[in-house]
Nucleic acid binder design. Structure first.
Lengths: 204, 204
DNA sequence: AATATAAGAGTACAACTGTACACTGAAATT
DNA sequence: AATTTCAGTGTACAGTTGTACTCTTATATT
């Protein structure tokens, strides 16, 4: 049998998973009760407090997990080392494949960004900013956008991330319509192309 | 005194306003109860059902009101008839002034888009699509983007709307920091400039 | 003037909520 | 081997929830 510490971590993960499952089933994080969570996790209500002092605290931990997923996306993209004219399509596909593979996390992120508590909104914002900064450093490193100040590069990275992440909800809501999902990916690619073309004409 | 019909409409509006007030105070629509709403509205809980069969129904009515606000934005922009190199800045300012003036509505919209019920998410999506289509027809009418197919124009309008509306939450969360709000407006203007520059190089 | 209508008030209740408290038993420490 | 620790259980309770029901009374209809 496992050690006490291991078992605790296990239950903790079960609680987090319970929330993500409930969100995936269509629930809204802000209206999920401690009792629903513990029921879903197969644990008694009061046990919750052995791990989190509030649902909000649990939510912040989920945001941390989302951060990990975002880092995985970045790592994958760097390893794949896309190049040439298919680079854009391949990057977008990589991103949405991750969204598909972690739909509960991304649904939670979008919910939290707009409708969570102040703390959760800020946490999500931070993760997105981090993601944007990583993109920025890749744009710099690979010299994908020559002759650009740091401030402008930051602004452009931000625009790219916004363009992509704004479509997450629409993408997930089309889960039963793969054709529309495909079109959506395609649309995003076009939008990013436009945007990158714009950078070549940009002068601060 | 007012007629029975007028009084009914009045209470109905009070209920809607109650929800928007609660959202403005930091509440999440999905977790607001009928009793909270009626309490805020100064009306007995059971009265709620004389007007709406569920909170979701009330929410859909709020989305309709948001639609009206969006139409006002469009009308204002057309009347103002911005032109020249300040056009972009003036349009963005117009938009964010409206956001400022209807913060409860816009907060509700962002919450609903990501965390509402399926019905509410779809309703919000529809309003945003409408908004995007109106922009598209203006781009066409004013020939702001020459030599562009309808499909591409639609895709570009969508990108513009996304870029602007994605910043609503960030903007409202900086309510206590007007300098940051100003910077945010400025950033959006730059992003739109890049994007429009991109369109001039675009070939399907 | 007599009657019908219907918006809002009041009452009631079962289901659910967060959380305080004492308990259990297996794992960790001594 | 004896003791301590502590994750998870069980019980309890006051507050909140949605909603069915009846009642009131001002307005509308006749």
């Amino acid at each position: 049998m496992a050690t006490r510490q291991q078992k605790k971590i296990q239950t903790r993960n079960t609680l987090i998973k319970a929330v993500l499952d409930l969100v995936d089933e269509g629930g809204s994080f802000s209206s999920i009760s401690i009792r629903e969570i513990t029921k879903q996790a197969g644990v008694v209500p009061t046990s919750f407090y052995r791990h989190f002092e509030s649902t909000d605290q649990l939510g912040l931990n989920i945001v941390d997990e989302i951060g990990i997923t975002l880092r995985k996306i970045i790592r994958s993209a760097r390893q794949a080392d896309f190049s040439g004219h298919r680079m854009m399509q391949e990057s977008v596909d990589l991103f949405f494949d991750f969204v598909q593979g972690h739909k509960e996390q991304f649904r939670f992120m979008e919910q939290g960004r707009a409708g969570g508590s102040r703390a959760i909104r800020n946490a999500v914002r931070n993760e997105l900013r981090f993601f944007s900064r990583e993109l920025m450093s890749d744009l710099e490193r690979l010299k994908l956008i020559p002759d650009m100040s740091s401030a402008d590069l930051e602004m452009i990275s931000d625009l790219v991330i916004t363009t992509v992440h704004s479509r997450i909800i629409d993408y997930l809501d089309d889960a039963d319509n793969p054709i529309r999902q495909q079109e959506l990916r395609h649309k995003v690619v076009k939008q990013l192309r436009i945007l990158f073309m714009g950078t070549s004409l940009w002068r601060t």
